[in-house]
Nucleic acid binder design. Structure first.
Lengths: 335, 335
DNA sequence: AAAAGACATGGTAACGATACCACTACCAGC
DNA sequence: GCTGGTAGTGGTATCGTTACCATGTCTTTT
């Protein structure tokens, strides 16, 4: 394994000069630069990032910890992070927690030990502990994605859950729906709470007071959507419209509706939150509010790298990106 | 940031003893162990893996480079790798190349610099260069996943493309199909070649000689499937059955068939390679050959870690795992 | 003409851990 | 009483790189 010293010897300079050439830092004459580059190429020199990181206290690596890599929302976020990071010379290490707190803790531990320069975290649960731990043990900034964490002094980038669900609900109200069933994620996750609240508030403003009665809490999964839909239909009379608060819940709901022979939108209207890839269904027909996943990743990464660059402790920022309403064919007017 | 020296001082021992406690290596008396562990806990000690890696020349980290993280086949492989790695105390760094050679090269470079202990690689193209590069520059073993690479002296773990497609074809032949259209991946990728060959061979054994005439080569994507299906239907007479050689191609093919109003299986039969998650369609109906993705990941990782442990250079292994035929409702007999 | 800056290079130490070797103490076996 | 093994601990060097400071040569400025 050839080292910087070998390259230096071959080029007839000191190791530090090789370092300057490789990192484009400090002054190096053109002729020296060429000699060094030639020597490095001839020797097939590969810098040792472990040594560099140890000495410089910088790894040029961001950690991205997210909850579900099978959800296209998150793969899109990841792509945004990747691109932003690459543009500024950072690598990204991606870890998937499966919404599992224990896994999350394991990953966070390893990432701290590996001395990440910064952390992008989509917390599995709404507790501030993992964030505190990073802030305490790793002298590195944290940006939280997607979910609000109470009591955490930390930057946040997320989509407008409240606004998106408010807009979806207004749309359903316009169509004449007066009873809307909400299939929600876990009660302990901020996005769930906000999406439910946005819906209830919109109904309240339309003088519908019992909006909160038709809420089911569950998991952000296909299975969760399926069983919540089942429970929702058990009520009499059941809602004329369903708000599935995430894309997997929407799929589960659709599966159950199809199983019991209810057609969308003829028999019941359905709206969702976050889109499904075009490829998954033969034709997109679901009306949804879409968060700008790519931008969430991109802006999160940029904010994080800004923090890394000027470790000046500005106050925590909260960036909320608007959700877009996409109207398709999954709803019908009442009457 | 507290170091091993701080812990040592506090526990009244030498740094090396702390190291022994933390790594459970060498002899340490019970009382010393407890003092050290207490000291480490009190000081919130976090080992620096950069330093450890630099000195010991081991990072306990595997690189996993794959081509498409949005494909459930690969996320399942990744899960297999993760689990196998965790079981033996390794971390995994996952990189997604999007089938893009330039991205792949970038990732491989960074991973070598970061001194991975081993590489799991699903090559974007069938050239041996990236493998050679790793073998030359990084003193670390490589295991190739899924795709056979000519001229590369390297371990391989993959599914049985040939056998799976042979079995699918036999099934179609049993149903009386005599003209089967093949929608294939890139000609430069071994899985494509093998799947096409398995199909052609099965037909030949049934005395169908013109099997090779109904092959389209394209990309392993939804768009690829769509346009290949289109071209296939342009032929007169068109095949009575279609073999989509990967899951995304199958989706694209289905989309085009629906667009032109052809029903599966009433108007045309369709089989696929590798499954789709239950959640993606409201009900699974596609007959497919399924590779054991999780096992591919798991066995690949295990083989790799074996190589790392005994760096003895046994001959390259080739592990081919059987594909399973799952018969559903996407095919009808002829006549 | 002297001072101040840009340009160019190098020497030395240090980052935080483990490899390697050395040392002591104790015990078993002949 | 000697040899040789296991148990337990530490000293020192070193992994490959960059931080920090020093030094020297040119220009440019005042």
């Amino acid at each position: 394994m050839t080292t910087i010293q070998d390259v230096a010897t071959r080029a007839g300079v000191a190791p530090i000069t090789v370092s300057r050439v490789l990192n484009r830092s400090g002054y190096v004459s053109e002729s020296t630069r060429q000699r060094v580059e030639a020597a490095a190429a001839e020797l097939d020199y590969v810098p040792n990032l472990l040594a560099r990181g140890l000495r410089s206290n910088r790894t040029n690596t961001l950690a991205l910890v997210l909850t579900d890599i099978t959800n296209p929302f998150w793969t899109t976020v990841a792509r945004g992070v990747e691109d932003a990071a690459r543009a500024r010379g950072f690598s990204v290490i991606l870890c998937n927690t499966d919404e599992n707190e224990a896994k999350q803790e394991q990953y966070v531990d390893v990432l701290i030990r590996k001395r990440m320069d910064g952390f992008l975290l989509a917390p599995a649960r709404s507790t501030p502990e993992p964030i505190r731990k990073i802030q305490k043990q790793a002298d590195a900034p944290v940006v939280v994605l997607d979910r609000r964490i109470a009591d955490a002094q930390v930057d946040l980038v997320c989509g407008d859950s409240y606004g998106g669900s408010y807009a979806l609900t207004q749309y359903l109200l316009q169509l004449g729906h007066r009873c809307i069933g909400i299939l929600s994620g876990p009660q302990a996750v901020s996005t769930s709470v906000e999406r439910v609240q946005g819906c209830i508030d919109a109904m309240q403003e339309a003088n519908i007071e019992n909006g909160a009665e038709f809420v089911q809490f569950g998991e952000y999964t296909v299975e969760g959507g399926y069983s919540m839909m089942q429970q929702m239909l058990a009520r009499q009379p059941h809602p004329t419209a369903i708000f599935a608060t995430n894309n997997f819940i929407a799929i589960g709901a659709l599966q159950h509706l199809r199983n019991v022979g209810l057609r969308v939108p003829q028999d019941i209207s359905l709206v969702g939150f976050d889109d499904l890839p075009l490829s998954w269904n033969t034709e997109p027909f679901l009306t949804v509010a879409v968060q700008p996943a790519y931008q969430i990743g991109q802006q999160g990464a940029d904010l994080l790298m800004d923090r890394i660059a000027n470790s000046a402790q500005a106050n925590p920022q909260e960036i909320v990106l608007p959700a877009e309403l996409i109207i398709r064919q999954s709803c019908q007017p009442i009457g």
